[in-house]
């Protein structure tokens, strides 16, 4: 199974998201094709209600600890409750361009 599919399945199981985008942005970085190294996630779920952004990100980082220890170097996280998602017009900011730091080093 691809890493993207694995991430998708883990988050669907754990967070019951109303919306989930797992976007592989590896091609924007200095990595070989198929590296599955840089992802952006958009997660809209009720479970984020009343939780700080740090708590939400920690939750996802914890669920994906195995992937973060493996091929995944960068994880852009956009976590919203359904109300927040509606309030921001269902828009997600673009990820920043690569600056080359993962070429020799790996890991954001």
């Amino acid at each position: 199974m691809s890493t993207a599919q694995t991430i998708h399945d883990i988050l669907v199981d754990s967070l019951s998201p109303l919306r989930l985008d797992v976007i592989d942005e590896s091609h924007q970085h200095n990595v070989p094709p198929g590296a599955e190294s840089h992802f952006k996630l958009v997660v809209v779920s009720d479970v984020f209600e009343g939780k700080s952004l740090v708590a939400r990100h920690r939750m996802i980082n914890g669920l994906l600890a195995e992937q973060l220890a493996g091929s995944v170097h960068a994880l852009g996280l956009h976590t919203h409750t359904p109300d927040e998602w509606a309030a921001r017009g269902e828009q997600v900011p673009a990820s920043p361009p690569c600056r080359g730091g993962s070429k020799a080093e790996g890991g954001h």
Binding site: A74, G76, S95, P96, P97, C98, R99, G100, G101, S102, E105, H108
Partner: peptide, 8 residues
């Protein structure tokens, strides 16, 4: 910065 996330 050596990384887009750090740069931003």
């Amino acid at each position: 910065p050596m990384c887009g996330f750090s740069m931003r």
